[in-house]
Write a protein that binds this DNA or RNA. Structure first.
Lengths: 345, 345
DNA sequence: TTGTACGCGTTATCAC
DNA sequence: GTGATAACGCGTACAA
């Protein structure tokens, strides 16, 4: 209860009449002790109620087993699920995670990184996109990006191109003759740009003209509503009666779109076909289940940690062979066919 | 680029012809140096590219500035938003967070706690509910619970009782004469139980008979569907034509309920009034916006960290006066009136 | 205002 | 198989 000093190796050593060294060995090379002595020490640990102190161990051997994480927010399900999966790799790799929420300000994120480095993190996973990868590549530790600009650092991404391609193919397979993609404008170097590219490439291969609606979405539900409303009005006017296949950049937006159609028509009109992206919970829980291109978040996270662990291990070797070029790994998306495309026709 | 040894106070000291102590003071008591000398050291830090090592500092002064967090999952928006807010308090309090996902197994969660303690965390915030608070209260650090069983430890909770009461009042205010609450069965000591209590107490005060449907919800969307479907069938049969006010334990479930009504009737029938709980995004993004009793997650998280920080600071005093009794603080809920109750009548 | 000497709790190196 | 002893990098009396 009180402020008892903590029990240390010294206490154990005195109690057992061994040396500190032997106690240390009990933890790190137990085989080098006789079974008998192992038991003695083990009993002493119990009796004195010893609690490990890994901070001292870090100072002595330099290994923190810390990985730093900077994530843009936890509001979007995608990010929180990625973090969930990252944290869960503790069971496999044993690394602990120091997590910061990037707040969109470059300078504060730089401070976070300094703070992480001061705690001797061995590697970093970054999903926040404010700091350019060129700058990150200069940091003294291995870094892995997930779904962000990654020209100069290693990364794990969903195969966004294939995702966009599959979405277009799904819609075309339902005989949609107007193929539409709704997204936010973005830089070519952001992985998600592949969704646009894959979608338009499929259209071109099929000699269809892809219709792109790029608006500044994602600020908030209420500000997305009028933007989508406007698009619906335009589509209804211009393509009345024609079968419209619409690929929307994420499930949240797809759900908003679907809600607007329900408000206007009380249902999903026959000539509308919808595909979202992410396979986030809302795609199953919307008023009609939404077909979507799912990201394999568990794999994204696992591979990111694994790639990081490999590079961190490499550094611990006597003669490290660091990566000369960043590694970019890509995880295939998975298609979910649901009610917004698989109607009884 | 290479494996250059890290720059330490010793290097700075040699470079500036000061002693290590002075360098240390530069960081901890800069005022005790002349401005001139501060500048000299500051320049040297730049030149040698010094990086702080907080691990060494921890070993020397015992303050890790670590808070451990154990959270059940990040799948539910409530938890991820709480974590979001907790992490964001770094800006205010400066504490860093080591986060573990509780995996429902008591013994592995105990291991997590040991791991956290071995890193010398100064306090812990726990939302996971597998380990009884009595056991937690025996740990050698301050602990604060959020929305979990908290008989023997301090806690921050939403005023669930008031939430249930308000929900019932809102429904009664719309002249619902059948008041229904849908929830999962739970122990009386879980804060969320207050929702049931508040709801039924209001009903009794108004001489209304509260109708409780307690089912094992929350496993998955698909397994909730039939449970809710059955309830709807029963309500339609038993209370046809009467105005039904339904308080559902959380917004996810309320949304599912609403979707089922839409599938059956193509709309929210006139005699159904719905109130959810949490004010999670789905309550705004469902096909009709759902009235809900919102938890003030930002406050929950902030107060939890603050309470913890107070207790951690108390321990650092020469003569600590630890809490004799756990502190239980309660945050009022906020009502959001939306389309599922505020119809044009 | 600045320096000396030691402690924090563990691991690593070398002896025995 | 076991034990001294010296790191690891910083903070803090105490002394000057």
């Amino acid at each position: 209860m009180g402020n008892k000093k903590k029990v240390t190796f010294d206490d154990i050593a005195k109690y057992t009449h061994f040396s500190k060294t032997t106690i240390s060995r009990y933890f790190n090379h137990p085989d080098s002790l006789t079974l008998e002595n192992q038991q003695i020490i083990s009993d002493a640990l119990e009796k004195l109620n010893y609690q490990e102190n890994k901070v001292a161990r870090i100072l002595a051997n330099g290994k923190t087993e810390f990985i730093g994480v900077i994530i843009p927010d936890l509001y979007h399900h995608f990010f929180s699920e990625v973090l969930n999966r990252i944290l869960s790799t503790y069971e496999t790799f044993g690394y602990k995670f120091l997590v910061f929420i990037g707040n969109e300000h470059e300078d504060t994120e730089r401070q976070y990184i300094q703070e992480l480095l001061s705690y001797q993190i061995e590697g970093m996973i970054i999903m926040s996109h404010t700091i350019p990868s060129l700058e990150l590549s200069a940091l003294p530790i291995p870094i892995v990006a997930i779904e962000r600009e990654d020209q100069h650092i290693s990364s794990i991404n969903t195969d966004n191109y294939m995702g966009g391609y599959q979405a277009a193919a799904l819609l075309a397979g339902h005989d949609c003759d107007v193929l539409i993609h709704i997204n936010s404008p973005m830089d070519v170097h952001i992985p998600a740009y592949g969704r646009i590219q894959g979608f338009t490439d499929f259209c071109k291969e099929q000699s269809l003209e892809p219709l792109l609606y790029l608006r500044d979405f994602g600020r908030a539900y209420d500000s997305d509503l009028p933007l989508l409303s406007e698009i619906i009005e335009e589509l209804d006017l211009t393509y009345a009666g024609r079968r419209k296949g619409i690929f929307i950049s994420n499930d949240t937006l797809a759900n908003t779109f679907l809600n607007l159609l329900f408000r206007k028509y009380g249902c999903l009109p026959k000539d509308y076909y919808l595909v979202g992206f992410d396979n986030s919970p809302i795609s199953r829980e919307s008023v009609l289940s939404i077909s979507t291109i799912g990201q394999q978040i568990d794999q994204l996270a696992y591979e990111a940690v694994q790639l990081l662990v490999e590079q961190m291990n490499e550094r611990k070797k006597r003669r490290p062979a660091p990566l000369k070029e960043p590694v970019h790994k890509v995880i295939p998306p998975v298609m979910f066919r649901r009610e917004t495309t698989e109607k009884s026709e």
